[in-house]
């Protein structure tokens, strides 16, 4: 084990998978000469050459479709969105091509593509550059959605995503690239899709979350511990496939649930989880399920307003106290 950043973990995963399989290539804006807008692809152009680390024009719909088309004939593209905000321009190819070609062709054309890039808010990037779009992707059958929150999960899950035969939307946290963590050095280290992980054991309440919000949940759990509240933090790690067993197990264990996500509440991940829990674990609940999401507004620029809009440790603690009737 070595302690490396989330960024380095992703870089290792890309390099290892490109080394392992000549059909894997990385394409996107500034991934080559510039070494990646967030330096995730640093050094890869020098190592693998310009057919495998490809700088594109700013043409998201075009290069996303290109990736899907190349996957139709067996390549395994990794398409980097400089941020997922820009993937909205490419969404037709994600939804109408990548997600549906296998089904529409009666099973003839699997699409082994990985889309990846940062999601969610950073600092004062305002409305168009701060969106957490996981729910939008998870809405469509045919796509898998992966949302790692730690360096080890980032590496293990990116490797699995690239090896998977389906389209995978892999969401990185824009504020996570610099965080450090222990990551196995073994080149065969992978983490299977659809396995959640309890990041903090607890018995009074379950905070179910993913991605960057795992860290908000852990801080909240720390604060709650000071008040002698034992909060379990379940990191979903994948949204589709979804580890429903782990969700139902933590609900059965604590009987109280707060769902925390960075995206908006309407039709969000938390909406689906709430439905699932009330359908399948209703009898285990001792309180209504509460949520912490982004404020239901476009992200404002002003520092104070932005802080108000984002999910926060304080909001989580508040909602936990409510489900505990404290």
């Amino acid at each position: 084990m070595a302690e490396i950043t989330y960024r380095e973990a992703l870089n290792q995963a890309l390099a290892e998978e490109m080394e392992r399989d000549p059909d894997v290539f990385l394409m996107g804006e500034e991934v080559g000469v510039y070494n990646g807008a967030y330096k995730v692809s640093k050094g890869l152009l020098d190592r693998f050459g310009e057919m495998r680390v490809v700088d594109t024009p700013i043409t998201e719909l075009g290069f996303t479709g290109l990736g899907v088309g190349s996957a139709m004939v067996g390549l395994r593209p990794v398409i980097e969105f400089m941020t997922y905000n820009f993937s909205i321009l490419a969404f037709d190819q994600v939804v109408n091509s990548a997600a549906k070609l296998l089904s529409m062709s009666g099973g003839q054309f699997p699409i082994p593509i990985t889309f990846r890039g940062p999601t969610g808010a950073a600092l004062q990037l305002s409305a168009q550059h701060s969106q957490a779009l996981e729910a939008m992707y998870a809405h469509f059958p045919g796509i898998k959605v992966v949302v790692p929150g730690t360096p080890a999960d980032a590496k293990g899950l990116l490797k699995t995503s690239i090896r998977d035969d389906d389209p995978v939307a892999f969401f990185e946290g824009e504020m996570l690239y610099n965080i450090k963590g222990e990551v196995p050095e073994d080149e065969d280290f992978t983490i299977p899709l659809g396995v959640a992980e309890v990041k903090n054991e607890g018995s009074d309440v379950s905070i179910i979350t993913h991605g960057k919000m795992v860290h908000v949940a852990l801080q909240a759990a720390g604060k709650l511990a000071e008040d002698e509240v034992s909060a379990e933090v379940l990191d979903l790690r994948c949204l589709r496939p979804l580890d429903t067993d782990a969700i139902l197990a933590t609900v059965a264990k604590t009987n109280r649930v707060v769902i925390l996500e960075e995206g908006w509440p309407y039709g969000g991940i938390s909406t689906t989880l709430t439905t699932l829990i009330q359908e399948e674990a209703f009898d285990h609940l001792d309180a209504p399920i509460l949520r912490v999401t982004q404020a239901d507004v476009p992200m404002p620029y002003a520092k104070g307003l932005e802080k108000l809009a984002k999910p926060s440790v304080e909001r989580v603690v508040e909602q936990v106290n409510k489900v505990l009737y404290r």
Partner: peptide
């Protein structure tokens, strides 16, 4: 033929 690789943990259909 919704997913090529269904041999995963967790749930794919909701």
């Amino acid at each position: 033929d919704v997913y090529a690789n269904e041999d995963v943990n967790g749930r794919l259909y909701f």
